[in-house]
């Protein structure tokens, strides 16, 4: 018998959410990983700004920065950063059709079309940036 119980008075049981609840289910862990890609977004943006500042200083500074970036450890780290950012890009673009519902007149544009449009935009942006940086 539970001595704390009184007839006709409900005694609810409330389960506490464990502090690391997101380790208990794969999809929650993926969610937290997705959110933490934002740290790498800021890192990558910061390095881009640093490179812009070096470029402004002139060719010797730029060459020095390039040789520092070519260190095997730095390259390895940046390959990892690239994969994290690709994870961000793919999860981000895949969720876009959820928020963006386009209607043309009476008809709803199918979500796959919205998705393809976003991937197309990604491709176009990549080509333009690569062209600006590499065209000679």
């Amino acid at each position: 018998m539970n001595p704390g119980y009184r007839l006709y008075y409900p005694r609810w049981y409330r389960k506490r959410v464990p502090i690391f609840w997101w380790l208990h289910k794969r999809s929650y862990a993926v969610f937290i990983a997705r959110e933490l890609t934002s740290v790498f977004v800021v890192y990558a943006a910061a390095v881009v700004v640093a490179l812009v500042l070096t470029l402004n200083k002139g060719e010797p500074a730029w060459e020095a920065a390039m040789s520092r970036l070519s260190h095997p450890l730095v390259i390895t780290a940046h390959v990892l950063v690239l994969f994290v950012i690709l994870f961000h890009t793919i999860t981000w673009l895949n969720l876009a059709p959820m928020a963006i519902v386009v209607k043309l007149g009476d008809r709803k544009v199918p979500p796959t079309a919205v998705l393809i449009g976003h991937y197309g935009a990604w491709f176009a942006c990549s080509v333009v940036v690569a062209w600006l940086l590499l065209w000679r």
Partner: peptide, 13 residues
């Protein structure tokens, strides 16, 4: 960041 960072990282880094 989704649209521009992958290409920036791939090319510049």
């Amino acid at each position: 960041s989704a649209l521009f960072l992958p290409v920036l990282i791939l090319v510049l880094f």
